[in-house]
Design a protein around this nucleic acid. Structure first.
Length: 602
DNA sequence: TCCCCGAGCGCC
DNA sequence: AAAGGGCGCTCGGGGA
């Protein structure tokens, strides 16, 4: 057994390392004295479902003492880890979905056993302040939180120690954790400190959760548990189709690259070998040479070359603009979607999206790994990559106008409220109030909920300044309650620096953008509508069918035979009422692939 | 060489 | 009066 003596915020902390099987007796004796543990694992990587993933070590803490077990060295170390996890009454973990998926898949202790007794300090920190470092918050990484709340020096030393070694050895951080020998002192101290920090952060953060939000603590843990179960199940990839799609897009990219070279050669002023069509700067330069001078500027003063401009130039006959547009699109699509799906796929051909249940500053979820929330919806070719399970079909259950209904519920605006009750066309109402097309009325409706003004409408709807002003004024006339709410929340945000949502969540609002407050309240409360729906689905035993939550929509894989009933049941679970406004859902059943919900045959 | 940022674009 | 909100990912480019 090896023992490390360390310091945290001036206090001594002790870390013990199990080195041989004989050391296990001392570890077991220690665990018998405690019921609550900080917990953490070190592993070969971040993708728990990768075929070469291994759990390397497990660490427990109680108060100022921690233990490390070299799980990868002997099954008995893994066995003791699993028994300790099962026996614990309470676990404190930073970013529990990760470590609990490790325990589930690699230590044989299911999520269902551990999540109900876990406190995730990541969740606590987001309830205290949802903002990232960049947005002026504390951030949510372990090191960031420790630096802010516990001990800046220790935070820097811990983080710095590994960073420095990586620099010396000229390796990446990921490689270090995969390859470092488990008897390395620096590694051991780093690993031992983490569960101690989780323990300390729990103590520190709990009392800082605003009173209005304390009831969200168990709720957010339930939401995280459900989403972790969804991640664990994964979404079946159609590997053959996905490979073909990736290949085809790369071929298109190559074709357009050759077309670009031809165009550049024709010009004769640039070397086509040197020209990089992926560089916005160089494309702008080429366009200048071609005599186009009508550029907008980006906020750093560069010439703006976006889709709008290229499309405009292409339709007015400039083939070069077309080639750039198509080249960029093919490459971007290949790399962002099918190729990334194939990289993320596990041995059974399933993709495990990483669902961050409280990622956005409004509490909205985000999905990383496979960027499932950003798949093109105007075209089925990318969504076609994902399949319902064998014998299943895809179902999509989404809320009807979730955010606009939330605007009605939160503002209590009579006209908007009645429009939903009577099934009137909200977009037409705005349009009529301003004397514009329905399409523009619709844009204005969303824009106001996003805190936007007439200038944004000019950009988006391509209308004149006066029409845009008239439309926004029309909205305010049609729905005065929404305008009043926006004003009231802006004032509230300016006065106290934050707003509180209907569910009690505290959201800080930047003083210089206080007008965002209404959007924050709408978006955040809408997020909670979906999250509460997920909890109802879980209680009804439907989680095994869920594949992805996407803001105001849930995607599911349902057994073909009773897909309609199950889709209806999910829809009923998601449905809710707020202040008399009904949040109704549209269950839709498609075919085997997700693409079939967007027009694909299969 | 690595890391961070801006620009651009996909979604709700 | 005016103010478009929230994400993730890719690439190129500049600085360390």
């Amino acid at each position: 057994m090896r023992t490390h003596h360390m310091k945290l915020a001036g206090w001594p902390v002790t870390g013990h390392v199990v080195e041989t099987q004989e050391d296990l007796a001392a570890f077991a004796a220690w665990t018998k004295q405690h019921t609550h543990f900080g917990f953490d694992t070190e592993n070969t990587g971040l993708d728990v479902y990768a075929t070469d993933f291994r759990c390397r070590t497990a660490q427990f803490s109680a108060g100022d003492t921690a233990w490390l077990l070299p799980v990868e060295q002997h099954p008995r170390f893994a066995w003791y880890t699993a028994r300790t996890l099962e026996r614990a009454q309470r676990l404190y973990i930073h970013n529990a979905p990760y470590d609990l998926q490790v325990a589930d898949r690699h230590l044989g202790v299911p999520l269902e056993t551990l999540f109900p007794k876990t406190t995730d300090t990541g969740i606590l920190s987001r309830l205290v302040d949802s903002r990232s470092r960049k947005e002026g918050g504390t951030g949510h990484k372990l090191e960031e939180l420790v630096e802010h709340y516990v001990d800046p020096v220790a935070a820097r030393e811990i983080k710095g120690s590994v960073a420095q070694i990586c620099k010396e050895l000229k390796i990446k951080r990921d490689d270090y954790f995969r390859d470092v020998p488990l008897d390395d002192d620096i590694f051991q101290m780093y690993a031992l400190m983490d569960p101690i920090l989780a323990w300390v952060l729990n103590k520190t953060l709990c009392p800082k959760v605003p009173a209005s939000a304390t009831h969200l603590i168990p709720y957010e843990h339930k939401v995280a548990e459900i989403c972790t179960k969804i991640s664990r199940r994964g979404f079946q990839l159609d590997e053959t189709y996905t490979r073909e799609l990736a290949t085809r897009l790369r071929q298109e990219e190559t074709y357009w690259l050759m077309e670009i070279e031809t165009e550049i050669d024709k010009l004769g002023f640039l070397d086509s070998e040197e020209f990089n069509p992926g560089s916005t700067d160089q494309v702008a330069e080429a366009l200048l040479y071609m005599g186009h001078t009508e550029f907008k500027q980006t906020k750093t003063g560069k010439l703006q070359v976006d889709d709008d401009l290229l499309e405009h130039l292409a339709t007015s006959g400039l083939y070069f603009a077309r080639t750039i547009k198509e080249y960029k699109k093919a490459g971007k699509w290949a790399g962002t979607w099918p190729e990334s799906f194939l990289t993320n796929m596990d041995a059974e051909g399933r993709c495990h999206a990483n669902i961050n249940t409280l990622q956005a500053r409004t509490g909205r979820m985000s999905i990383t790994g496979i960027p499932a929330q950003t798949l093109p919806s105007g075209d089925w070719m990318v969504r076609r990559c994902f399949l319902a399970d064998e014998g299943h079909v895809i179902a999509s259950i989404d809320y009807q106008a979730q955010e606009l209904r939330m605007a009605a519920a939160l503002s209590g605006d009579e006209r908007m409220f009645n429009a939903f009750i009577n099934g009137e066309d909200l977009h037409q109402i705005t349009a009529d109030a301003a004397g514009v097309d329905r399409k523009i009325g619709k844009m204005a409706n969303f824009l106001v909920c996003y805190g936007g003004g007439w200038k944004a409408l000019v950009e988006q709807a391509k209308v004149s300044e006066s029409i845009a002003k008239r439309t926004i004024a029309g909205f305010n006339k049609a729905y005065p309650g929404v305008a009043a709410l926006a004003k009231q929340l802006t004032k509230e945000a300016g006065r106290q620096g934050y707003i509180t949502t209907l569910t009690g969540r505290r959201l800080y609002v930047d003083a210089e953008r206080a007008y965002s407050a209404i959007n924050y309240r709408i978006q955040s409360t809408a997020r909670d509508v979906t999250a509460r729906g997920l909890i109802k689905c879980d209680k009804a035993g439907l989680t095994e069918y869920l594949r992805l939550p996407i803001h105001d929509e849930v995607v599911a894989s349902l057994p073909k035979a009773n897909a309609p009933e199950l889709a209806h049941e999910i829809g009923q679970c998601l449905r809710t009422q707020i202040r008399g406004v009904d949040f109704i859902t549209d269950p839709e059943i498609a075919g085997r692939s997700w693409g079939s919900a967007y027009g694909a045959d299969y």
